[in-house]
């Protein structure tokens, strides 16, 4: 979830995403190093660097998704976790199917939660040797820096600005901005069918920025945005608020991460995802900068996770509302040994 996410480097990624899709559609890009990178990751990365630099991100940021090579070796961070006997993971409580508290049982469940348990099982031998700590969107990085959590598994997008603050694992999910509307709506996606329609997005989100750049004639701004008189009708605090507005008939469509849009569609059988994602983003597991042994260990877990558990978790939590994903994004590794 990236309503308040740092935007550096993501601005150019919208266009990049389209480029990626085109490239990926025409031919599979051969891997540069290690296993196959994320679809279309190779040559199309160059514009990303320019865009990122233009927006103030690290100049040398070409492959934010590239992470440390996997390793099961123990290090000081893992030793500390072992000594504690519990892995502390920062998660979401509000994203349906990703990380949310089931009101009926009171427990946290979802795709991200399964992954957090898999990491705990690998390090500590039990999927229950984990403390799931709810972390608000804006506190994800602070929680890592303040050592309140060992890891953050919380629909967190990997980008150039963030890799200077936290260490990401390899990408475990590919997503992109997408349009959500009623099944019988004439809206077909992020295109001219949005003309004259009222479109909801979360304040300060990638979706909002995309609409700012190109709205196709959609109404997406509140009159008094950013002031106390903000009516919170078209731009709302949280992406889920958009579904409330959609159900109330106050908006015609929602733009958000496809992964989160799927969570919305799962809560309302009358709506569906329209068209295809028009950006490409990757979710990663975040650790504190310098906790290299933990990052390598998570990457090690992900190697095995991609081979089977990933598909089962996808099947269980996401497939119904986010169909058509054949598998996890391929990991991309850094060649140099240090961060």
């Amino acid at each position: 979830m990236d309503e308040r996410g740092t935007r550096g480097g993501r601005g150019g990624r919208g266009a990049l995403g389209l480029a990626c899709l085109l490239v990926a559609a025409s031919a599979l890009v051969p891997p540069r190093h290690g296993p196959a990178p994320a679809p279309g990751a190779g040559p199309a990365r160059a514009p990303a660097a320019e865009a990122a630099a233009a927006e103030g991100a690290a100049e040398d940021c070409t492959d934010p998704e590239a992470s440390l090579p996997p390793s099961a070796a123990d290090g000081p961070t893992i030793a500390a976790i072992r000594a504690r006997g519990k892995l502390v993971v920062g998660v979401d409580q509000n994203s349906y199917r990703w990380g949310y508290r089931n009101p009926a049982t009171g427990t946290l469940e979802g795709f991200d939660i399964d992954l957090a348990r898999a990491v705990a099982a690998d390090i500590l031998g039990s999927p229950d040797a984990v403390i799931l700590r709810a972390v608000p969107t804006n506190q994800r990085i602070a929680a890592l820096e303040g050592r309140k959590v060992d890891l953050v598994v919380r629909t967190m997008t990997i980008n150039c600005a963030r890799i200077r603050q936290v260490a990401f694992s390899t990408a475990y999910f590919e997503t992109g901005q997408q349009v959500l509307a009623a099944k019988d709506s004439p809206i077909t996606g992020y295109d001219t069918s949005l003309a004259g329609k009222r479109v909801c997005s979360a304040e300060g989100s990638t979706a909002y920025e995309a609409l700012e750049r190109r709205s196709y004639g959609a109404i997406h701004r509140d009159e008094h945005d950013g002031t106390p008189r903000d009516a919170d009708r078209y731009t709302v605090p949280n992406q889920l608020d958009c579904l409330v507005r959609l159900q109330a008939g106050e908006v015609d469509a929602v733009v958000t991460d496809s992964a989160l849009a799927a969570g919305q569609a799962a809560q309302d059988p009358a709506v569906e995802l329209k068209g295809t994602p028009f950006t490409t983003e990757y979710y990663g597991v975040a650790a504190r900068l310098g906790h290299d042994d933990l990052v390598r260990r998570v990457n090690h877990v992900l190697v095995a996770y991609r081979a089977g558990p990933w598909a089962r978790a996808y099947e269980k939590w996401l497939k119904a509302d986010l169909p058509g994903i054949s598998g996890p994004p391929a990991p991309l590794y850094r060649t140099e040994a240090s961060s």
Binding site: Q93, N94, S95, Y96, Y100, R101, N102, P103, A104, P237, N238, L240, D241, L243, V244, A248, Q267, D268
Partner: peptide, 14 residues
């Protein structure tokens, strides 16, 4: 909320 959907919280906030 009774259906187990986080949407309930969003409605309450609305």
């Amino acid at each position: 909320d009774r259906q187990g959907l986080p949407l309930g919280g969003a409605y309450l906030r609305y």
